[in-house]
Protein backbone atom coordinates (compact mmCIF):
# COMPACT_ATOMS: atom_id res chain seq x y z
CA UNK A 1 0.00 0.00 0.00
CA UNK A 2 3.04 2.22 -0.32
CA UNK A 3 1.44 3.91 -3.33
CA UNK A 4 -0.51 5.95 -0.83
CA UNK A 5 2.48 7.88 0.45
CA UNK A 6 1.63 10.63 2.97
CA UNK A 7 2.66 13.14 0.31
CA UNK A 8 0.02 11.85 -2.11
CA UNK A 9 -2.64 11.77 0.60
CA UNK A 10 -1.72 15.32 1.57
CA UNK A 11 -1.63 16.71 -1.97
CA UNK A 12 -4.95 15.14 -2.96
CA UNK A 13 -6.52 17.57 -0.48
CA UNK A 14 -4.36 20.53 -1.49
CA UNK A 15 -6.63 23.18 -2.97
CA UNK A 16 -4.19 26.11 -3.12
CA UNK A 17 -4.72 26.49 -6.87
CA UNK A 18 -8.09 24.76 -7.05
CA UNK A 19 -10.82 26.61 -8.92
CA UNK A 20 -12.11 27.53 -12.36
CA UNK A 21 -10.84 30.46 -14.43
CA UNK A 22 -12.90 30.53 -17.61
CA UNK A 23 -11.37 33.90 -18.53
CA UNK A 24 -7.84 32.42 -18.63
CA UNK A 25 -5.92 32.69 -21.89
CA UNK A 26 -5.32 28.94 -21.97
CA UNK A 27 -7.59 26.10 -20.97
CA UNK A 28 -6.53 22.43 -21.19
CA UNK A 29 -8.67 19.40 -20.46
CA UNK A 30 -7.08 16.18 -19.26
CA UNK A 31 -9.47 13.23 -19.47
CA UNK A 32 -8.95 9.53 -18.92
CA UNK A 33 -11.77 7.58 -20.63
CA UNK A 34 -10.84 4.40 -18.77
CA UNK A 35 -11.77 5.76 -15.35
CA UNK A 36 -13.54 9.03 -16.11
CA UNK A 37 -11.00 11.19 -14.28
CA UNK A 38 -11.13 14.69 -15.67
CA UNK A 39 -9.13 17.82 -14.84
CA UNK A 40 -9.16 21.30 -16.32
CA UNK A 41 -6.03 23.45 -16.30
CA UNK A 42 -6.30 27.25 -16.65
CA UNK A 43 -3.35 29.59 -17.10
CA UNK A 44 -2.12 32.76 -18.76
CA UNK A 45 1.23 33.26 -20.45
CA UNK A 46 2.94 36.54 -19.68
CA UNK A 47 6.49 37.37 -20.70
CA UNK A 48 7.19 33.69 -21.32
CA UNK A 49 6.04 32.71 -17.85
CA UNK A 50 3.01 30.84 -16.47
CA UNK A 51 0.65 33.02 -14.52
CA UNK A 52 -2.55 32.58 -12.49
CA UNK A 53 -2.61 28.81 -12.81
CA UNK A 54 -5.74 27.04 -11.59
CA UNK A 55 -7.13 23.55 -11.87
CA UNK A 56 -10.53 22.00 -11.33
CA UNK A 57 -12.06 18.59 -11.87
CA UNK A 58 -12.34 15.19 -10.31
CA UNK A 59 -10.11 12.17 -9.99
CA UNK A 60 -8.54 9.58 -7.73
CA UNK A 61 -6.06 10.45 -4.99
CA UNK A 62 -3.09 9.84 -7.30
CA UNK A 63 -4.36 11.84 -10.26
CA UNK A 64 -5.56 14.69 -8.07
CA UNK A 65 -2.25 14.85 -6.18
CA UNK A 66 -0.19 14.62 -9.39
CA UNK A 67 -2.23 17.49 -10.85
CA UNK A 68 -1.86 19.60 -7.70
CA UNK A 69 1.90 19.13 -7.72
CA UNK A 70 2.08 20.02 -11.40
CA UNK A 71 0.07 23.18 -10.91
CA UNK A 72 2.20 24.20 -7.94
CA UNK A 73 5.26 23.82 -10.15
CA UNK A 74 3.71 25.71 -13.06
CA UNK A 75 2.93 28.92 -11.23
CA UNK A 76 5.43 31.60 -12.24
CA UNK A 77 7.66 29.17 -14.13
CA UNK A 78 9.30 29.98 -17.47
CA UNK A 79 7.62 28.08 -20.32
CA UNK A 80 10.89 26.75 -21.72
CA UNK A 81 12.03 25.41 -18.39
CA UNK A 82 8.64 24.03 -17.52
CA UNK A 83 8.53 22.17 -20.81
CA UNK A 84 11.76 20.39 -19.87
CA UNK A 85 10.57 19.70 -16.34
CA UNK A 86 7.38 18.09 -17.63
CA UNK A 87 9.29 15.91 -20.09
CA UNK A 88 11.67 14.90 -17.31
CA UNK A 89 8.82 14.00 -14.95
CA UNK A 90 7.15 11.81 -17.59
CA UNK A 91 10.43 10.02 -18.29
CA UNK A 92 11.00 9.55 -14.58
CA UNK A 93 7.54 8.13 -13.85
CA UNK A 94 7.18 6.04 -17.01
CA UNK A 95 10.70 4.79 -17.63
CA UNK A 96 12.42 5.31 -14.28
CA UNK A 97 14.94 7.75 -15.73
CA UNK A 98 15.93 9.77 -12.68
CA UNK A 99 18.96 12.05 -12.44
CA UNK A 100 18.36 15.13 -10.37
CA UNK A 101 14.70 15.00 -9.44
CA UNK A 102 12.62 16.76 -6.79
CA UNK A 103 11.81 14.45 -3.86
CA UNK A 104 8.10 15.16 -4.36
CA UNK A 105 8.15 13.15 -7.55
CA UNK A 106 9.30 9.94 -5.93
CA UNK A 107 5.94 8.62 -4.64
CA UNK A 108 4.40 8.96 -8.11
CA UNK A 109 6.93 6.61 -9.65
CA UNK A 110 5.35 3.79 -7.66
CA UNK A 111 2.13 4.18 -9.67
CA UNK A 112 3.79 2.30 -12.52
CA UNK A 113 4.09 -0.75 -10.27
CA UNK A 114 0.31 -0.94 -9.78
CA UNK A 115 -2.02 -2.38 -12.41
CA UNK A 116 -3.71 0.35 -14.39
CA UNK A 117 -2.47 3.25 -12.27
CA UNK A 118 0.39 4.76 -14.34
CA UNK A 119 -1.98 7.13 -16.12
CA UNK A 120 -3.17 8.52 -12.76
CA UNK A 121 0.32 9.87 -12.09
CA UNK A 122 0.71 11.42 -15.54
CA UNK A 123 -2.76 12.50 -16.71
CA UNK A 124 -2.46 16.30 -16.40
CA UNK A 125 1.29 16.21 -17.11
CA UNK A 126 0.68 14.58 -20.49
CA UNK A 127 -1.88 17.21 -21.38
CA UNK A 128 0.57 20.00 -20.66
CA UNK A 129 3.30 18.11 -22.52
CA UNK A 130 1.00 17.93 -25.58
CA UNK A 131 0.38 21.67 -25.27
CA UNK A 132 4.10 22.37 -25.41
CA UNK A 133 4.64 19.96 -28.30
CA UNK A 134 1.92 21.67 -30.35
CA UNK A 135 3.43 25.11 -29.69
CA UNK A 136 6.78 24.13 -31.14
Amino acid sequence: MDLYDPLILEYQKNDTHFGKRPEAGNHLQAYNPVCGDSFDLYFDLEGGRMKDVRFSGYGCAVSRASTAILVEMMEGEKVEELSQIVAHYLQFVESGKDGDIPSKWIPFRKAGQYPGRMKCATLAWHELHNFFTKRQ
Binding site: C35, G36, G116
Partner: peptide, 22 residues
Protein backbone atom coordinates in the same frame (compact mmCIF):
# COMPACT_ATOMS: atom_id res chain seq x y z
CA UNK B 1 -14.48 10.95 -0.09
CA UNK B 2 -12.67 8.08 -1.81
CA UNK B 3 -12.31 7.41 -5.52
CA UNK B 4 -13.22 3.89 -6.76
CA UNK B 5 -9.73 3.42 -8.25
CA UNK B 6 -8.05 4.13 -4.93
CA UNK B 7 -10.36 1.73 -3.13
CA UNK B 8 -9.74 -0.90 -5.84
CA UNK B 9 -5.96 -0.54 -5.61
CA UNK B 10 -5.95 -0.87 -1.82
CA UNK B 11 -8.21 -3.94 -2.03
CA UNK B 12 -5.83 -5.43 -4.61
CA UNK B 13 -2.99 -4.95 -2.14
CA UNK B 14 -4.90 -7.31 0.11
CA UNK B 15 -5.45 -9.87 -2.64
CA UNK B 16 -9.03 -8.85 -3.45
CA UNK B 17 -9.96 -8.46 -7.11
CA UNK B 18 -12.90 -6.11 -7.72
CA UNK B 19 -13.80 -3.96 -10.70
CA UNK B 20 -13.73 -0.18 -10.52
CA UNK B 21 -14.93 2.50 -12.89
CA UNK B 22 -17.99 2.97 -15.06
Amino acid sequence: GAHPFDVGTILDQQGIAVRTGH
